[in-house]
């Protein structure tokens, strides 16, 4: 059980570097954006893992019951808005990728660089 006390943090670390690897090592821009959203998901997981309180429940006072242990509402608020902001910014990234594709005819990073050097 003591090992599992940190398990969420380790999964966060692994997911984070999987996303990071995709962003660094992949040349396809769409793939990089997918990697970025994995990275983003890892950060969400870290915050939500921190909000958990042992034996707690979601911070909603059902039937006016305030006596129970409740998990921390603050990380939930931060991540709730971050998810929607995340999709909006991902859409912006995708729009840029679509424009790049139209101008360069490719979404591969090295092709684009080669064209820039050639011109």
């Amino acid at each position: 059980m003591a090992i599992l006390a940190y398990f969420n943090y380790w999964v966060f670390a692994v997911l984070l570097v999987i996303g990071l690897y995709a962003v660094i090592a992949k040349t396809n821009l769409v793939k990089q954006l997918i990697g970025l959203s994995i990275f983003q998901g890892a950060v969400f997981l870290l915050y939500i893992s921190m909000n958990k309180v042992e034996g707690g429940t979601a911070p909603i006072f059902l039937n006016g019951n305030t006596e129970r242990i409740f998990s921390n509402p603050l990380p939930q608020v931060l991540i709730l808005t971050a998810i929607v902001v995340g999709i909006a910014t991902t859409a912006l990234g995708l729009a840029v990728v679509v424009r790049i594709r139209e101008e360069y005819g490719s979404v591969e990073e090295d092709d684009i660089k080669a064209q820039d050097v050639g011109s």
Partner: peptide
């Protein structure tokens, strides 16, 4: 992890809207 609100958002945004946007870009 007790974050019902966040789960609802992630399911609607991540699994629904994001997939459609990525497919549209693809």
């Amino acid at each position: 992890l007790d974050a019902a609100d966040v789960a609802l958002t992630e399911a609607a945004v991540g699994a629904g809207v994001a997939t459609v946007l990525f497919l549209g870009a693809l």
